[in-house]
Design a protein around this nucleic acid. Sequence first.
RNA 1: GGGCGUUUAGCUCAGUUGGUAGAGCGCCUCCCUUACAAGGAGGAUGUCGGGAGUUCGAGCCUCUCAACGCCCACCA
Length: 872
Amino acid sequence: MSENQAQESEQLSTTYDARKTELETYKFWEDNSCFKADSNSKKEPYSIVIPPPNVTGVLHMGHALDSTLQDILIRYNRMLGKEVLWMPGCDHAGIATQNVIEKNLAREGKTRHDLGREKFVEKTWVWANEHKNRILEQFKLLGASFDLSRKRFTLDEGCNNAVKKVFVDLYNKGLIYKGNYIVNWCPRCQSAISDVETNYETEPGHLWEISYALKDEPGAIVIATTRPETMFGDVAVAVNPKDYKYKDLIGKNCVMPLTGRVIPIIGDDYVDKSFGTGALKITPAHDPNDFEVGLRHNLPQIKVIDEKGYMAQNEYVPPQIQGLTREDARKKTVEMLEQHQVLVRVVEHVHNVGKCQRCNTTIEPLLSTQWFVKMKPLAEPAIKAVKDGSIKFIPQRWEKNYLMWMENIRDWCISRQLWWGHQIPAYYHNKTGEMVVALENPDPDNYTQDKDVLDTWFSSGLWPFETMGWPDTSSADYKKFYPTTTLVTGFDIIFFWVARMITMGLEFTGVAPFSTVYIHGLIRDEHGQKMSKSKGNTIDPVDLIEKYGTDALRFTLTYLCTYGGQDIKISDEKFEFGRNFTNKIWNASRFVLMNLTKTKDELKLDLNKLTIADKWILNELNETTKLINENIENYRIGEVASILYEFFWNKYCDWYVELSKIEKNEAVLVYVLENFLKLLHPIMPHITEAIYQKMPINKETIGIINSSYPKYDNKLSFYDDAKKMQTVFETIKALRNIRAEFNIPLGSKINIVIDKNEQLYSQIIPYLERLAKVAKVEFKQNVQIPKSAYCVVDDTKITIPLEDLIDINQEIKRQQKKIEKLEPELNSIVKRLQNEKFTTSAPADVVEKTKARKEELISQINLIKETINKLS
RNA sequence: GGGCGUUUAGCUCAGUUGGUAGAGCGCCUCCCUUACAAGGAGGAUGUCGGGAGUUCGAGCCUCUCAACGCCCACCA
């Protein structure tokens, strides 16, 4: 696509080779640095940061949708003349990446401990460096116009500096603390995870009722539990103080079965009298609620399950149970309880079990020393920003969701017992254990850094500003492109990511990191199931691209992406829709370019030389342009796709290009095509660029990519002429209809008699002759032609002598059917107009419209009746 | 337990201020009319989940019921 080529009118190939065109076009943009953002530009900025895909990731349909939407906004704003930056990068994905490397090691029969931390991290870096480019390279297949010269990684040096600064500052402000609390512990990942990384699954289970004997007196108290294996960590039995059944037992002691340990019976409002037996065992080290109860009552904390999910080997756990898995321990404990005849009852019980988001292992609530972010003070400004409109969610309903979460926010456990990630900048004196939180190790000889790393989302939470050079607020990118404009993502990471970016952005930069959050739905399979590799129901975007082309993929996804942000169900075949559209665009463009006879300069649009057909299509283009601009500004991107499809296929191709075979205005053909391509470019960038390059027009810029987006233009508004043209179309359609209904072959031409409006119809005779295969048009007033069919367009009666063409009886039946269809509507309209309340309270134009419709129906019905009479 | 979403043509879904329903696919008829059969022309198909209310008028607003789905909470 050299400059020489671009200057000349060229034929388009007979068939469209999407992949070839797309690769060439993308290369053309890259070679010309079309995606590069200039932070010194004077133009208004527009920026988006990509939701960084995991370095472990492979391109999937979710990326395809998400990136297409971002690219549409980026390209649109670029064409609006703004200085756009789409910041790419990927996420180091702490647990996910470490899992991959560990799995690789496992194949060699090794664990990460065989390598040691340093070697392991080194190895992971090698892998990450290989893979972090792979996923962004794949995004290129989507046509992504991001600025790869700026690509970032959440674990690169810049991000690490930002993370350290944020950590240290939050610590100094008292918003980060370290403490011993119950956390969600994944025994497989061997790490704490946060609340949002824990998913609950409903599972059938049991409620075991166990009898605890009272100490020094007869009787027992029966507790109910779903986890008997944790009983060895019990430190009390709790009842509700208002529960008359147990009130008197409070303050007494009981003796635990199997171990004989003596624990107190306490009263606490937390206990629900009506659940289970109304008595609850308290195990502070293994249950978050029990932990709270334990603190209130100053109870000890006894750990009986270790970090790997095995029963502890300590004096609290009976020897038969020690070292068993949680599952085996449960069976064994129940067995032993039965033997001791203290198992009172087993009730089937469906309950929710926490699972690790990463590996689906059952979470163990575990007492552990971890780092936390105190969220309440950070949440306040984040709530305010959404409430006062500084940040707007689209669709708006997500604001409620966000606010509910923020208003009930809990502290965020940020430490992970992993090796891959940002190591916590806390340093401990080797002898005294004194802790220093600082950007750098104060004295590497005597201080050792905290072993833990930070939750991946901690660094992702800084993404909009850490990628712009922060903490250097004088950096060019930060000044030009921060805060960013729009954030585009799925609803599934509003809490994980969006909420954290907002809190961190406000806390550290004083402004919201973006003003609009555009939330789209999730991609699902044709049955509405989430796509997953394990279910085997995934559709690979790369396959779709190879089969249908990137533009077809983008267009189909966009078309399916409705304003409500509903999930999108897809199947392979659905993309034929977009493929067919690319084919149509290519062929229509090919036809138009093929038939041009004029030179570039002669193709200038001359508004003084327009037929009504020209004015009609220019008016349609103009109205379409207006609608497109409005809808894209309002994030109704699916609507944009559908409007463009309708305009091009049903207006430009079906009518205007067809009309051009009779009488053509090359300048208009080219003008409309050019502007349509520009309007479509953000959605289907490659094909529009490829055709644009071959158009014989004076181009303002190197490519359509940086041409200016069409705007509504008063000079192109031809409402009255457009309406006339509609009449032409109605006439043609009516005639075609009669022809098709009666199988009048195209070979046999028909005559028509038009009873008035000669002036208008004389303009359209050529069209009628060609498009409706009319042989002869006559103008007569009030003629009586036997055995005729009529049709009415506007107020003009068109008579078609049928005698020689059709079966008359069949026609009578057809006409009667028509009346049956029209009458119910007429009846209801008449009724409405008789209703005084309607005529007085409805707006005048509505009443007028209704009256007009009534007249129209009456005249239509009369005409049909007349036709029937004439035929019989 | 709390919140949200969905329910419209056989299928997948649109429907922006309330004025009597649209598209794509599929289906039926005809056409290779030389840009496109991945196409063209025409056609059939809906008491807009049920019920009630507001209104002259409801797919759209209010209430209620039902089914399905999602999120949050996590009563052991």
